[in-house]
Nucleic acid binder design. Structure first.
Lengths: 141, 141
DNA sequence: AACGCAAATGCAAATCAGTTGCATTTGCGT
DNA sequence: ACGCAAATGCAACTGATTTGCATTTGCGTT
């Protein structure tokens, strides 16, 4: 968890080191699911030491997203954007609708499909977001 | 197109018949891609005869969505919601990151995959959300 | 064919997520 | 330790969507 490590990580990405950025980074690292800017703000603000302004949270999330450290998505039904760490390897998750547990899925079912889709539509396909919802073995009982 | 037909359709869904609702319904029926409330409002307001208030458009879209007549989604990166007729079939969309246009994709690449995934993980798969981002032919130039 | 009332609409004001301008503070290279 | 560009805090703003309330409209009833 050391702040020394983070300084190095940030430098690699050309991101200036600040306490606020470390707090957001650490919070995102610990988060097991995509979260909203508001959630991050609320949580951090509760732990006094990491209090910061909401607009700063937005600015940091935008920065991290631009630098490729974080993934932003708009899939939420309520229209709020969510953010999560970019684990670099393209990944999808299986979400249990009962217990909300999230499990990463091995492999991506869309690799070939994307190629074909790009050819048939003449779009330059850049990326995709996929989440699969279901009920996990434990909750099925 | 007939308003007589629509009256019947509405009644089937328990929707009271009004000129505004007919106008929105007809406009959505003719639209080939998901559109925003604003777009519907602008278009209808231009054709004098169908002029109506923006909040009415929102209310009608909410109603249609609740009744299952229309699908709402928040895929747009710019935060606007889009609406389209519910053709009852499971659908995904291709979103242009430059112009934000949205095009429905024929077929779902995940049908078989879901079945296999369910077997291998022992999850009961319920549904999935997928958005594919790219650059459309027009914007590629 | 007019009547009455609940539901729908118009309008303006409110709300909510996210953004921006600007004064102040902080990190980092020298 | 110094100085300046970049980051933050704060408050005001934006743009999409929602809401309260007065007015209007659709539709079953007489």
């Amino acid at each position: 968890m050391g702040s020394i490590d983070l300084k190095v990580v940030f430098k690699k990405y050309g991101i200036k080191n600040t306490v606020q950025r470390q707090a957001v980074y650490n919070y995102l690292t610990d988060a097991s699911a995509p979260i909203t800017a508001e959630q991050i703000y609320m949580e951090l603000t509760q732990s006094e030491s990491d209090a910061m302004n909401l607009s700063t949270v937005y600015r940091i999330l935008d920065l991290f997203t631009k630098k490729g450290l974080v993934l932003k998505s708009n899939l939420q039904a309520d229209g709020k954007s969510t953010y999560e760490m970019n684990h670099m390897e393209h990944r999808h998750h299986l979400i249990c609708v009962k217990c909300n547990s999230i499990v990463p899925i091995k492999g991506c079912p869309l690799e070939d499909y994307e190629k074909r889709l790009g050819e048939s539509t003449n779009y330059q396909i850049l990326e995709h977001h996929l989440e699969i919802l279901g009920i996990c073995p434990k909750c099925r009982k």
